[in-house]
Design a protein around this nucleic acid. Structure first.
Lengths: 148, 148
DNA sequence: ATATATGCAAAATCTTTGCACTTCT
DNA sequence: AGAAGTGCAAAGATTTTGCATATAT
């Protein structure tokens, strides 16, 4: 945890950004909720618990900055809000998601499932892949059992 | 073209919706721009050219309705707007997209690239896949040539 | 010192809703 | 007639911006 913050600090400094207390508080919230998919508002409320003076605009600006640095990924599951998801350290690619259309749960898949598909895209479409977004919509195992 | 409108009409009627002139105008715009990824505003402006009396709210309501009927898919490429993409007739799954991070072009891939991946997800995560969203971000062939 | 960052409130965007009116069947 | 659909303007929701103040190196 402290290590990761340290590394993010270095990354910020290398581009002459600062790791202010507000930014650190935001990063900590993200680290403590790695499995969730928080909206800016969610992050704001959680940061506010420990640093009540923070403003929503700062959270937006911080998330935007972390996005640029590829520390977080901005995703959108189709409800009107952007969600922010911490990138696994060292992960070249964004992980995948399983969204349950019954209960709304979002599950993460860290495994790289797209290696072969990317090769096909690069070969057949001459498209140099840099990143991807893959989300499956369907019914999670719990909901399948429920409806039996 | 006329065939497709006829079939959409039938589909609407089967759930006691009507194909009003406004809805038909909207569908025609979508058919004429199958390769594009229009926002609600884009659709509105195009419909307005031929049916100036239409309102933006109606366009939103129509797109929402067509979305429910799975005639269009609502997608989001991360700029703050939803885009609407006509589903290929008979296509079980949503097609894929290649977004160029240099020029912003969006290319479509109709081929199903995810058959094997879906099998893995169903087997290893007990997740019943109903649909998917796959977007690659990278550099299109044109932009690759430009920067050589 | 000086560039960077913050908080607040205002503005900008995108989308949805209420309501009176119109249009189909 | 009655349900369904429309247009307009107002309201909601999310995100961005301007600006005066505060903070870090």
């Amino acid at each position: 945890m402290e290590n990761r913050i340290e590394r993010i600090k270095t990354q910020l400094h290398s581009q002459s950004y600062k790791l202010t207390p507000q930014r650190e508080a935001t990063v900590r919230v993200l680290l403590e909720h790695e499995e969730d998919h928080l909206s800016a508002e969610d992050v704001y409320l959680l940061v506010k618990e420990k640093s009540p003076e923070i403003g929503l605009a700062t959270v937006y600006r911080t998330l935007e900055l972390l996005s640029e640095l590829k520390v977080v990924d901005k995703i959108n599951f189709g409800d009107g809000v952007s969600r922010y998801d911490l990138r696994k350290e060292g992960a070249e690619h964004f992980h995948h998601h399983l969204v349950c259309i019954e209960c709304g749960t979002v599950q993460e898949i860290d495994e790289d499932l797209l290696g072969d598909v990317e090769k096909i895209v690069e070969r057949d479409w001459q498209f140099k892949v840099k990143d991807h977004r893959l989300t499956f919509h369907g019914i999670c195992s719990k909901c399948q059992k429920k409806s039996e």
